[in-house]
């Protein structure tokens, strides 16, 4: 579908208008699958690249999901973003609010659903590249306002695993910090085991031991 969109690149007004109107009808009814972590990863990247260009970065957890929708539409018009960027950024911002994973599948005999920690099969490095890099940067020193320098000797990684696991899982905000760390980096698909692996990766890549 996106290929169809991209092919209307040449600005040929009336054909574009005609094609556009017909495609828009389809587009308006195609919701983004917020569970798709690829979209979330691209959305986080696009958000980190575009949403600090004109004003200070607004915290992804500042607004309710339904309010982000008109805001991102407003910003698409203002900043001349593409519809694709708009949908990806919106998916990321909406997922950043999810404190709890959706209850998934597994129902026991008694009919009581168990809280499963559905995990991906990605390695720590892959999770970091997909979900964390947009804010924490390739080198771990932080790519957006408020993201701490993970490589600093007395930085966040000097803390216990317990605290870090909780902060990554539940999200947290230091008083006065310009932005919160979203729960699971805004990717609700990550399970407990994933968080363990990505923390292991942080320690190995940026921690005191690596220096």
């Amino acid at each position: 579908m996106n290929r169809v969109m991209a092919s209307t690149r040449t600005f040929n007004f009336f054909p574009a208008l005609y094609l556009g109107l017909s495609v828009t009808a389809v587009l308006a009814t195609t919701p983004v699958d917020a569970e798709n972590s690829d979209i979330l990863a691209r959305g986080a990247k696009s958000w980190s690249e575009n949403c600090a260009r004109c004003h200070e970065m607004r915290d992804p957890m500042e607004f309710r999901d339904d309010l982000w929708r008109p805001i991102v539409t407003h910003m698409r018009v203002r900043a001349g973003l593409t519809g694709l960027q708009q949908r990806e950024i919106l998916a990321f911002l909406q997922s950043a609010n999810n404190r709890m994973p959706e209850p998934r599948g597994n129902v026991t005999d008694s009919g009581v659903p168990t809280r499963s920690t559905a995990a991906t099969d990605l390695s720590g490095a892959e999770i970091y590249q997909q979900t964390c890099v947009a804010c924490h940067g390739q080198d771990g020193t932080g790519a957006v306002p408020g993201a701490p320098d993970l490589t600093a000797a007395d930085g966040p990684l000097a803390q216990d695993d317990g605290i870090l696991l909780r902060h990554i899982t539940e999200g947290f905000k230091t008083p006065g910090s310009p932005m919160a760390m979203p729960p699971k980096g805004g990717n609700p698909a990550l399970g407990g085991a994933d968080i363990q692996r990505v923390l292991g990766y942080l320690r190995e890549k940026f921690g005191a031991a690596s220096q």
Binding site: F11, K45, E49, R76, A79, G80, L81, L84, Q85, E88
Partner: peptide, 18 residues
């Protein structure tokens, strides 16, 4: 007005126009 964005290969580089 006609406004929008056109990707320049990938998502990070693009043109916006009004």
């Amino acid at each position: 007005q006609a406004r929008g964005g056109l990707p320049l290969g990938g998502n990070s580089r693009f043109i916006n126009y009004a």
